[in-house]
């Protein structure tokens, strides 16, 4: 799965674009987070790797801006499980397990659209990294 960030302007935010695309392309699109009001919207979604290209094209055709957010990667060698990052996560993707290890839940993390934990890490163990397919789509943005 690849995560994509969709931005809808004021003019198109009322249209049911996402559901239209799901129906038209017969592909699953998982909404992870959504901030939408009458002035526009920002939606973070997850789509299958193999359909990424056509999904991105379909959104762009309808006037949405598509970008690929970076993901968070934790260097487990560097991480000392101090916990300094835990309370900064707005979606509670970082937890402490029984043996007092700090664990990141990649499924929950919303990636570079957030990054709140990155500068809180004293060991500098958290980095934003590009997703596999980001090269391909980033070039199409222009």
């Amino acid at each position: 799965m690849v995560r994509i960030l969709l931005r809808f302007s004021e003019d198109i935010v009322e249209q049911p674009i996402t559901s239209q695309i799901i129906l038209e392309l017969k592909v699953p699109i998982n909404i992870i987070t959504a901030h939408v009001n009458s002035k526009g919207g920002e939606v973070l979604a997850e789509v299958p790797d193999e359909s990424l290209d056509k999904i991105v094209k379909a959104f762009r055709k309808r006037g949405a801006k598509v970008s690929i957010p970076k993901l968070i990667e934790v260097d487990t060698e560097k991480c000392v499980s101090c916990g300094a990052c835990v309370t900064l996560c707005p979606v509670e993707a970082i937890t402490i397990d029984e043996d007092a290890s700090v664990v990141f839940n990649k499924e929950k993390c919303i990636g570079s659209t957030c990054s709140a934990c990155v500068d809180a890490c004293p060991s500098r163990a958290i980095k934003s990294v590009k997703q596999n397919n980001s090269e391909l789509t980033a070039n199409n943005t222009h």
Partner: peptide, 23 residues
């Protein structure tokens, strides 16, 4: 425990020192 209360506010709390390494 991960949370404390101050007044009537519940606040998420975490450590800066590693309990795992301390153990």
């Amino acid at each position: 425990s991960g949370a404390i209360t101050v007044g009537d506010k519940r606040i998420r709390v975490s450590s800066l020192s590693s309990l795992k390494t301390a153990r």
